[in-house]
Design a binder for these strands. Sequence first.
DNA 1: CAGAATCCACAACGATACTG
DNA 2: CAGTATCGTTGTGGATTCTG
Lengths: 138, 138
Amino acid sequence: MSVGHIAVTTPAPAEPVISCETPQEECGVRDVLDRLGDKWSVYVVVELAAGVHRFRQLQRAVPGISQRMLTLTVRRLERDGLVKRTVYATVPAQVEYELTAMGHSMTHLIKALADWSIDHRGAIADARRSWDAEHEAP
Amino acid sequence: MSVGHIAVTTPAPAEPVISCETPQEECGVRDVLDRLGDKWSVYVVVELAAGVHRFRQLQRAVPGISQRMLTLTVRRLERDGLVKRTVYATVPAQVEYELTAMGHSMTHLIKALADWSIDHRGAIADARRSWDAEHEAP
DNA sequence: CAGAATCCACAACGATACTG
DNA sequence: CAGTATCGTTGTGGATTCTG
């Protein structure tokens, strides 16, 4: 366990698991989860992991995203230092997006997430079905 | 790379990175992210990773959560098969929550997330500061 | 104790229209 | 092409009240 701020997989006695200095600060975990939790960031990062993209190219690569949401998403990722944005002063305008080193380091995390999801999607779907079956309107 | 559905850390040529059968289905990754992305699930799971909790005990352990949100959160986790809920027919009522095997398997993921967050929280904060400095109102 | 139910505020998202 | 601006809808979460 590299960092050890969180003790997991220990069905042991009940002790505080997060031992941040200030629990309210949430250890900065929230900062990451907010980015991962919004609807599009993960897909944009995954797409950019494949290489540099221009705006439209990125929008086409992420099916269903509106240009407003793409703008907001890449802005946030840029602000967090995960994505680098390069503007070329051409006509018409041209902008390229690529992951920073930190952005690339996060793709490992996303891959782990995706792997776990794929491995357990069936079990989760089954759990939901049986839960729904037991809790339907009487 | 265990599963290989996602190619990461490869700043290589632009190729589709997610190779789901149906991209719209989102590979079930959304299912996990929706759970991880909401405001409280992670903290509840982390808390339950330490052992069995009763409702009030859990609420006290997760500072700031309302009982409505705790109810909703544990219900969703239960529905997904990540948490097991046991009701004891005592007076007053008593309910115990604990992670299932699948729930425990997810704590590895959360730990990886937390480690990454802690390792990069400083860099992210710096990136945000400099971004904000460059984009303040003229 | 463990919750269900209700009401309300706000943020997130989508669709559309317009601009350099 | 790469956005910005505005509007309307939906979803999420908090506070409060009530119940077995």
